[in-house]
């Protein structure tokens, strides 16, 4: 089990000190997958490199099964690391890349050979062993990189945005394969991504990170249902956060306490008999309907959804109904943002 306690990393360059990571506490139990989710530049990759041993902690400690990793150099940790783009060794063929980490294990050549074959099959590239690395496509290279990382049976696999460089359909296919490989091999993994869809699809636990610190840790469903603050709500797909007054104005009866109400577009539906009236300011087609931006008096601009077949134009007046299934309560300790969130 990986334990991170009060981890902090600072960079000093050109007389400027940057706090890349601060006060991070995380646990990754054996055979589970943790996603580190955050926008680019939030420090998630730095934290991952620190776990691998490629960056030194300024404060705190990272340990494995109670052993502090600080004194153990990269090559003795027995972790695997996968980069955004394969970083395969250009002077070795595919089999040579996968076998690289097996040399240390002292396996006989025969064994290495068959294991390389197994791994290629596992990642869906059987028979690729003798291919030159330069001839692989981006997706193939990532599959080989995954096989290479898994080959020495790492106690922990670290994945640094492994799908970010691929196009969308390939990314979805590879994401599904990656998930099944991690589950079938029982690999403990930390998966860094800026894409909430990826994080929620693959991880048992998600840690949402921004500006170097962790805002919330929990299973995907919990982060969806109870985002820790307005920022997290915005990052995982909530489009507006309303204070108590505005929440009442849209007809919410959800008890808020001192908190606020976060809305996804689905929280407001177009309904001719609905109690709310708003003016359309933007119509955006989406796969399963229209997403509207609507201005409601006393609330501001919010998102709403409508069926595709409704003829709508900007400046139309529409009637809406609140649906609590698309809303979540945000605890009220952070600064509240009313209206649509940016970014």
């Amino acid at each position: 089990m990986l334990e991170i306690r009060d981890a902090g990393i600072t960079f000093a360059a050109d007389k400027r000190v940057t706090l890349a990571v601060r006060n991070v506490d995380l646990d990754v139990p054996d055979r589970s997958v943790l996603a580190l989710l955050g926008p680019s530049g939030c420090g998630k990759s730095t934290l991952l490199r620190a776990i691998a041993g490629l960056e030194a902690l300024t404060t705190g400690r990272i340990s494995w099964d109670g052993t502090d990793l600080a004194g153990i150099s990269v090559h003795r940790r027995g972790f695997g690391l996968m980069f955004q783009d394969g970083v395969l060794f250009p002077h070795r063929d595919v089999a040579g890349n996968i076998a690289y980490g097996l040399r240390r294990t002292g396996l006989p050549n025969q064994e290495i050979h068959s294991r390389v074959g197994d791994l290629l099959e596992l990642v869906g590239q059987p028979g690729y062993g003798s291919r030159r690395v330069a001839t692989l496509s981006g997706g193939e290279a990532q599959r080989v990189a995954l096989a290479r990382a898994l080959a020495p049976r790492p106690r922990l696999l670290l994945l640094d945005e492994p799908l970010a460089a691929l196009d969308r359909s390939l990314r979805e296919r590879l994401l599904a394969d990656l998930g099944s490989v991690l589950r079938s091999t029982g690999t403990t993994a930390v998966f860094v991504t800026h894409d909430q869809g990826e994080a929620f699809a693959i991880a048992d636990m998600v840690a949402v990170m921004t500006s170097g610190s962790i805002r919330q840790v929990g299973p995907a469903a919990e982060i969806w249902a109870r985002p820790a603050d307005a920022w997290v709500a915005g990052f995982v797909g909530y489009s507006s956060v309303l204070d108590a007054q505005a929440a009442a104005a849209v007809g919410s009866t959800v008890p808020l306490g001192s908190g606020a109400l976060a809305l996804r577009p689905a929280a407001l539906r177009l309904d001719p008999g609905g109690p709310l009236t708003g003016r359309v300011t933007l119509v955006t087609p989406a796969p399963d309907g229209l997403v509207l931006t609507v201005r409601i008096n006393g609330v501001g601009e919010v998102k709403a959804i409508a069926a595709t077949d409704v003829p709508l134009a900007v400046d139309d007046l529409v009637r809406l109904r609140f649906d609590a299934a698309g809303a979540a309560v945000v605890p009220g300790r952070d600064d509240l943002v009313s209206g649509p969130l940016v970014g």
Partner: peptide
């Protein structure tokens, strides 16, 4: 390469406990 793999698929090849971490920092 592929021939040898197909025959060895029966046993799950990858689910193995990793070797113990050398306590370098003891």
């Amino acid at each position: 390469m592929t021939a040898s793999t197909t025959t060895r698929r029966s046993e799950p090849p990858l689910v193995v406990d990793p070797p113990p971490l050398e306590p370098a920092a003891a």
